[in-house]
């Protein structure tokens, strides 16, 4: 059984999927951040041979989210490709998977700092940011408060502890005014939500919505001194 969580961000309903994607039901838009395609192969150039299956794993997860929510539009919130040459390194099979996904929905590629210029062969359109009702989707959150901002870039993670053990998971972060998405890429790292780049975005209390196996868990966070 699959449970999703719906939260309110600046007056818009946002469904948080445990795969790490956000869905905007009113606009039938699926949003994923920081896929970092071909991060694995970017390490190979220096002799570190990570398993070359990260793009495939990320795409399989994306296909699952698309299948589940049937979006009209898919928005990739930037850093979809790990570097400028990633589009050239990606395997033929993975490219075919991307093409297949592009046929079932409209695609918007937001530019990120890792991929200011996405590969030329990519379908869909590119943009710096895009607006859906009260929400503005962009790659990097602004330091000052922008109501309804939905961003990626920061790769938030949170930790929960009990019985002498801790669990670290990727998470969404929101205070109801703005939302930061977790990284979607199989090899994307993480930054703790208590660290300044994330905690500093919120003036008051905020929630970390941690990704569980089949559901999202809401954890309250208050800024410590």
């Amino acid at each position: 059984m699959w449970n999703d969580l719906i939260i309110n961000v600046n007056g818009e309903s946002v469904l948080l999927d445990a795969l790490g994607a956000a869905f905007l039901p009113a606009h039938r838009a699926l949003v994923v951040a920081d896929m970092h395609f071909e991060k694995g192969s970017s390490f190979a150039r220096t002799g570190q041979f990570l398993p070359p299956y990260d793009s495939r794993a990320t795409l399989l997860k994306l296909a699952e989210a698309v299948g589940r929510h049937q979006p009209a539009v898919v928005v990739a919130l930037g850093d979809s490709f790990h570097d400028g040459e990633a589009g050239g390194r990606i395997g033929a099979e993975e490219r075919a998977m991307l093409d297949a996904l592009a046929r079932v929905a409209e695609w918007v590629w937001i530019a990120g700092n890792h991929d200011p210029k996405p590969p030329a062969w990519l379908g869909g359109r590119t943009a710096g940011e895009i607006t859906f009702g009260g929400l503005t989707l962009r790659h990097e959150p602004h330091a000052e408060l922008h109501l309804g901002e939905v961003a990626g870039h920061l790769h938030p993670c949170a930790t929960a502890a009990k019985w002498g053990r801790s669990v670290r998971r990727r998470c969404f972060v929101s205070d109801g005014l703005r939302l930061v998405l977790p990284a979607f890429g199989a090899y994307a790292g993480g930054l703790d939500v208590r660290e300044t780049p994330i905690a500093g975005l919120f003036a008051g209390p905020y929630h970390a919505y941690m990704l569980g196996r089949t559901r999202v868990y809401a954890m309250a966070h208050r800024k410590s001194a």
Partner: peptide, 27 residues
């Protein structure tokens, strides 16, 4: 110490903000 089958999920569950869980869950 306490170990159970799906312990990671249990730890998440124990830490959850129950108010939000109960108010906002959609099945």
């Amino acid at each position: 110490q306490m170990v159970a089958g799906a312990v990671d999920e249990d730890i998440l569950h124990e830490n959850e903000d129950a108010l939000i869980r109960d108010a906002m869950r959609v099945e």
